[in-house]
Design a protein around this nucleic acid. Structure first.
Lengths: 225, 225
DNA sequence: ACCTGAACACCGTTCAAGT
DNA sequence: ACCTGAACACCGTTCAAGT
């Protein structure tokens, strides 16, 4: 009984969840560069290499952290009864919001795959809602691809124009960042670009996103004519 | 005459262009992680800190390298006489292609701003073509935003699903990568996702991109009705 | 089994010194 | 002005040793 499946040796002094929570705190307070194996280890009070008892590599830790972030996207119940367009828009908007609430996570997400259990569950829910709209599975798959590119692309644009020291900015801070980009563009050489930044800056990021989302939803909606 | 604007001291032994070319070679052969100040210095045969004579920081070097990559997007002449939709599609497709030809550059581009002279020139050309379609400057600005998110998002999805060791993959390699992602998704838990990967894998990345591009162009085209 | 101390092979950047 | 050697404060990861 002592041998077999029971593990000998001392119990672990930390938990995966504790380590991921510390990692998220570092990401939120210092951006993506502040998340290192060594900084996480210091935050939970162990030696750097002790982290490798919980996660085999830094990449595995990052992947777990990112998927945790997506945990709130899908509730427990089955597909709700909302109209498909509302549910699809809600899912996509919620994804954007959770990412912008943790901008330090965005550079990590953009370069890593998107295939943890919570990401897959959200994608499954998205496909189900799209099929409820009347799209064939094949068309729903392509619509899902287009919606994913939209969220990732718009979040990438939003975060790239932020001052790296500006963490957890609200919508106003992002608008200000866009305005400051304007002054950096020499209007005499790039008149349309300067004017375009001015136009876009008049809208908050959320309005801008919603505008594009409606266009994308129109583009993928089943042809009724 | 000796004093004044003439610079004393030895001439520089390298050039910015030489350093950027070495950087791109490293990026293409080893991915984004292979581009370091020290590896570039070794490639051009100087001490690591000599790079700081040419670029003030690594970020400045990366920015210059990325903008160089966009140098071929815009020709010399004024806007050509092609229909607006063709020119817009051509610009956007060319951007996608230059990025996928150098996948190591994608992680760098996704997290940095997009505001070098060549990026601005391409953006200016894009806005001009959109205005030729009949869109107001304000609508052209929003259309440009949507098109940018599409390229960035689709390139991010394309590169994220690649094996990091797989450099400069052709279209077939990317299709194979997508197929291998399929086997990783447990179909019993995520039936729609597994089926969707199968659908998407039946198309090459270029076909998939063109499908979405046509939808996005439809979505932003001026309403003629 | 888990944790530690020490080490390895890196990294970006700075500084003082040589020419 | 440009380049070098040396150093500083990091990084992810591995290994041998302790419990």
């Amino acid at each position: 009984m002592v041998a077999g499946s029971a593990r000998p040796g001392p119990a672990r002094t930390r938990s995966e969840a504790e380590i991921l929570a510390a990692g998220l705190r570092l990401l939120d307070s210092g951006g993506s560069a502040a998340l290192s194996v060594r900084s996480v280890a210091a935050a939970v009070g162990v030696a750097p290499n002790a982290i490798y008892t919980y996660f085999p590599t830094k990449a595995a830790l990052v992947k777990a952290l990112l998927d945790d972030l997506l945990g709130g996207l899908v509730g427990d119940g089955p597909a709700d009864g909302r109209p498909w367009r509302e549910e699809v828009g809600g899912l996509v908007t919620a994804l954007r919001e959770v990412l912008l609430a943790h901008p330090g996570a965005v550079p990590l997400l953009l370069v890593s795959a998107f295939d943890g259990p919570n990401a897959l569950a959200a994608g499954e829910r998205l496909l189900a809602a799209l099929e409820r709209s009347g799209l064939s599975p094949a068309d729903a798959a392509r619509a899902s691809y287009l919606l994913q590119t939209y969220v990732l692309g718009s979040v990438a644009l939003d975060v790239a124009e932020l001052d790296p020291t500006q963490l957890r900015p609200d919508d106003d801070a992002r608008t200000a960042a866009r305005r400051s980009a304007l002054t950096a563009v020499p209007a005499e050489h790039y008149p349309r670009t300067a004017a375009a930044i001015d136009v876009v800056a008049a809208y908050s990021g959320a309005e801008q996103f919603r505008w594009g989302l409606e266009r994308v939803l129109d583009a993928v909606a089943p042809r009724t004519s």
